[in-house]
Write a protein that binds this DNA or RNA. Structure first.
Lengths: 127, 127
DNA sequence: TTTTCATTTCAGATTCTTTTGAAATATCGA
DNA sequence: TCGATATTTCAAAAGAATCTGAAATGAAAA
């Protein structure tokens, strides 16, 4: 053993600069303590998973223009009803959109959270 | 362009307010024209897919504290080498992290894009 | 009431992502 | 050179997401 080691994680041989800065932040334990909790990470990754599909991003971009009923979204995307319904369900579950029945139709609009993300998506048009 | 029709998409029966605002933005065609291109949507959704996993978000949060070699990341996460390597590969391919060999180790750090996302993830600690 | 229309739900098939354990690569120190 | 260590790669298996077409729901018009 390297008994004169002043670092907490002496059991793990490391590159010098990593070891030094790791020590400065409290070693493995200190680093671990700074990380977001698993519940938060799970929620955040679920949000990203809802955004991880081109069709769904396109739906958000459409709804950023204006609220729309399912049949218009379908006309723009040119996909089957059930497929669209599936993707709308994913976005709804992620709290990015909300639907309100109006007579024979259901009109979907962005939630506040959906607005924020749609903005980010549409803004990116340049890069 | 010269049309007698008041609405471009008269074939599609719509709720009144959707029809009106849809007309104001140029009908189905006008709306379609405002949307981001498929190539951009694909790139953006690929980025979100890379972020759509709690382990990977945790890795980004770790690297927001400091650059780290694989063995430290592994010690914090407590997962198998090959599994970690897979997730590092996903993040690397999405251009969120980059690895630099240093002797026997590979030290990973956030890219500029990775920094921005890691910030967003860590900032969310309250909500 | 019956029909029609917009939308959702369901089950099965398909495709994509992730996990696993073993083998490969590559670098260091002796 | 050898052996140890850090990391990646690979193929197969497991799991999750998505697609499909058919059937169900529910509101409105006839």
């Amino acid at each position: 053993m390297a008994e004169d080691k002043k670092y907490q994680d002496a059991s793990l041989p490391l590159p010098p600069d990593v070891e030094e800065s790791l020590c400065r932040c409290g070693g493995i334990a200190g680093l671990t303590g700074q990380l977001p909790g698993d519940d938060l990470l799970k929620r955040e990754s679920a949000l990203f998973r809802a955004l991880a599909d081109p069709l769904r991003l396109k739906i958000l971009a459409m709804l950023a223009v204006q609220p729309l009923c399912v049949c218009v979204i379908k006309a723009v995307l040119g996909i089957a009803d059930s497929k669209l319904s599936y993707h709308l369900g994913v976005l709804k579950k992620a709290n990015l959109i909300a639907g309100e029945a109006q007579g024979n139709w259901i009109i979907y609009r962005l939630t506040a959270e959906g607005e924020a993300w749609a903005q980010q998506i549409v803004d990116d048009n340049g890069s």
